[in-house]
Structure formats: structure tokens, C-alpha cells
Design a protein around this nucleic acid. Structure first.
Lengths: 239, 239
DNA sequence: GAGTGGTCTAGACCACGGA
DNA sequence: CCGTGGTCTAGACCACTCC
């Protein structure tokens, strides 16, 4: 059973993306939505606040909720999303090749990234993402084995994300991402079609479950010209 | 007069950062906070939800609000912050040199970025950020002149941000950032100490006021090895 | 003045975790 | 079982925008 505010949120997202409410027009007022969904104002406001948080609308006191123009925003890929989800949304001709999949004991560096001991087994998954015939992203995933006992090449070719959430019923709650640029390593040069570039854009991703345990550390190494990341940020506290 | 939830939020942020509530310990329960501040539960929850949003805590049903470890998070520089705010927070030896400041009519490209006409005057501010004796960031700001009539070199050396908010009383509400990498231009090579790097990390920043008008377009060009950006993201809707 | 969103109250019931 | 957080209600008063 979906909660009411989530239903309202989903409805409005759908309507906005379908163009039912165009950019710079007003959404129905909180009162109208309240009556329409036969619910309390707080519930409506919760839905609207999430729309605001996610960059769909701007609430203006005395006026209403203005729909923002997200056409140039393309995809809000700031948030936790898997490569598969992304490539679907963007209609990209993408393929994934699993380069290696193995169980290992972490090096001291990896143990620190994963907040675990060097004697605890972890999975190492190395995947190459191919877009339009070019190998442009190298993904290295490190996953705690005690949380994910089994992993197959087939799963890694699809979406590890989906597998973890749907098959294992682990709830991913939040993540910390660190963006930087690094000199390309020998491995980068071997596995990617780097052309003349001597640096790669690195996205380190620490993925946490809802009980705050760290599940996975991922390093995504992008060829510079194929890297793009969009972020929507609010300065004020949400109302 | 500060609102109650903001007061609670600020208090808790202060206490968490001061170490009064250490990582992996529990905050007082919603009931306790409710009594302490003599307010309703909803008001307390609003404050806690913002803490959750900002990566300070994880709320766990049946248990409480767990303080997350932000020591490695350093600074949540994902969010709207000026260079001055940042360098203050990070104790960095940073200097700003204004390379040029002028009024111009936008090129077609710039007009599109700023969502304005090619006949409307805009400011162009070019600044070089020097960290530890090296020129590592080139900031190019384009600001609508009708919103900001006057701008001085002195202001640009300090913080344009502060000037806009405090002197002009314009309320900045949200921003869209686009991260990418580009081949270094002739200008990059002239103004920055680029060493052997042939690409720069570019952060395009579109800054909006609370009435949804676009105020400013900024392009921040970073030497790759000095670029770092940290993002905290939640997968679930906030509760 | 009428309508909008922003803050807040005082209740209620539910789902979950831990002892 | 009790205490936790998650959802929701039905009111209230305020600040703001627009006419």
C-alpha cells in the first residue's frame, strides 16, 4: 500500500513530465489538491516539498507552485542510479562487458574504503561500459561478501543494483560520492579507448544500507570527454 | 525571529559538529526533543528530516536517529557555496585575483545560458583563484545587469555572492550545476598554471532567485589535480 | 480582500526494534 | 511489551501576492 503523499508526488511527477503542467505554469494550489485527494493539507505539502527538493517546482508564497523547466536538466543523475537505469532513461546505445569477477581479501586501502577488516572476503567486479562502440567507462565495484554471498557474471552484466534490492531485499538508503580527476593508470589505458587523454574523471561511490552499514565501494573511471554530471541544489532549507 | 524547527536544526548541527553527539550514537528521541523545546512533534520531525537530508543523521524506525560519520565527508560542498565560504571552511591559503571586469552585450551562446536577449547588458567577471601559490581555478561569471546595476573590482575580490545577498537583498534559492571535462583553451593555458594537463574540469553553474528568475551563469574551470567535489545523496524520499 | 504558501498544535494509529 | 519513528487529520494563525 503506497502512502498518500507518495501517490500525489508520483501523479504530479508524471503529469509534469507528460507536459500536463508546462514550465512556468502553476500547479493546483494546496487547497485544491487537498480536496481532490481528500486528504489533509500537510500530506499535500509533503508531496510538494519533495517536488521542490527534486527540482520540479518552486513554491512561491502568495502565488503558488511554479513548474520549473527541466528540459535542460535532462536527467537528474545526481542521485543514486545505476548505469542501467541511466542508459535506459537517456536512450543510449550502451553495453556492459564484465572484465573480471572474483572473491578476494581486501588490500589495506580497500579495507579502509569499505570500513572492514583485511580478513573479510569481498567481491571485486571490474566492468567496462561501452557507449556507441567506444570503451569509455571503467567500473570497479567492491562489495562485502557477508552481505552478498553469491554473484554471477550474468548478474553483473545486468544490474548489481537491481539484484541487491530485488533478490536480496537489502534496502539501499544513501550514498556519498567523491568526484576527482586522476592521471590515467596502465589499467585505464589498457581497458578504455582513451585516445589522447592522460587523465580520467573518477567517481568514488560509497553505498550505504538503511541501517547505516556500508555495503559497497565503487570506483567509476570515465574518459573525460564522455563525463557529465548534473546536480540540482537548494540553498534554503526546504519549507 | 527564527522559526522553531530552524532553531532545533541549528542546535543539533552545532552539537553534532562539536562532538556532543558522536558518530553512531543516537540523538534524543523525537519525544524528548518535543518536551525539551516545548513544541509539537511535527516541528521536531521537520528539523530531523533536514538533518537527514543533509547527511547528518540516519533515522531508523524503532530505534532512533543515528548520527552519521561526517569526518570523511569533510565539507558538503555540493551545495551552493561561494569560493570564499569554502576556502574559509577548509582553512586553505587562497587568493583571488580579478583579471577583468566589464559590461558587455552577451554573445548568442551566453544569451542562451542566461536566458536573456543579446541586447541586454551583462557583467563579465573573470577571476583567477590562487591556492598555495598556484593559479588553479579560472572563474568566469556572467551576471544580468538589470538585477545587479553596480559591481566593483573590490567586491569581486571579496565575494559577489555576499554582495548580492546582503547588499542587494536578492534571495538566491537554487542552482543547477553541470560537471564536465573540456580540452584546455588558450585562455586556460595563459591564466592558469596548468602544468602538463591538457584538459580542465568545468563546472557550469546556473544560479536562480526565489522567484525563479535566472540571475547568473558561472563557469568554473579547474586544473584536474585540484578538483574535488563531494555529494551526499539519498535514494528514498525523505520521510 | 481573497487566495496563496509557511509555521505550528494536539491529537491519532501504525510498523518496527529491542529487551 | 514499550519506545521508537512514519503517516495522517483538522484545525489555527501568519506573511505574502495579486487584484
Amino acid at each position: 500500500m503506497k502512502s498518500i503523499y507518495k501517490e500525489i508526488y508520483d501523479d504530479l511527477v508524471r503529469d509534469i513530465e507528460a507536459g500536463k503542467y508546462g514550465p512556468n505554469t502553476l500547479l493546483p494550489s494546496e487547497n485544491e489538491l487537498m480536496n481532490y485527494y481528500d486528504t489533509s493539507r500537510q500530506t499535500v505539502r509533503k508531496a510538494l516539498n519533495h517536488l521542490s527538493q527534486d527540482g520540479y517546482i518552486q513554491k512561491i508564497r502568495g502565488k503558488g507552485s511554479v513548474v520549473l523547466d527541466r528540459s535542460s536538466l535532462d536527467f537528474p543523475l545526481s542521485w543514486l542510479a545505476s548505469f542501467k537505469e541511466l542508459s535506459n532513461k537517456m536512450n543510449i546505445n550502451a553495453k556492459t562487458k564484465v572484465h573480471s569477477l572474483k572473491i578476494m581479501e581486501p588490500t589495506p586501502t580497500l579495507a579502509e574504503h569499505l570500513q572492514t577488516g583485511t580478513d573479510k572476503e569481498i567481491w571485486e567486479v571490474v566492468r567496462v561500459r561501452n557507449i556507441d562502440g567506444q570503451n569509455v567507462i571503467l567500473d570497479k565495484d567492491y562489495i562485502k561478501r557477508d552481505l552478498v554471498p553469491n554473484l554471477t557474471i550474468k548478474t553483473c552484466e545486468q544490474s548489481i543494483f537491481e539484484f541487491i534490492e530485488k533478490e536480496l531485499n537489502l534496502e539501499i538508503s544513501y550514498a556519498k560520492k567523491v568526484f576527482s580527476a586522476q592521471d590515467a593508470t596502465k589499467e585505464d589505458k589498457e581497458l578504455l579507448d582513451l585516445k589522447h587523454y592522460n587523465v580520467v574523471i573518477v567517481v568514488q561511490n560509497y553505498i550505504y544500507l538503511k541501517d547505516t552499514t556500508l555495503l559497497q565501494y565503487t570506483e567509476s573511471r570515465h574518459r573525460p570527454d564522455k563525463f557529465k554530471f548534473i546536480d540540482f541544489a537548494r540553498r534554503e532549507l526546504n519549507k
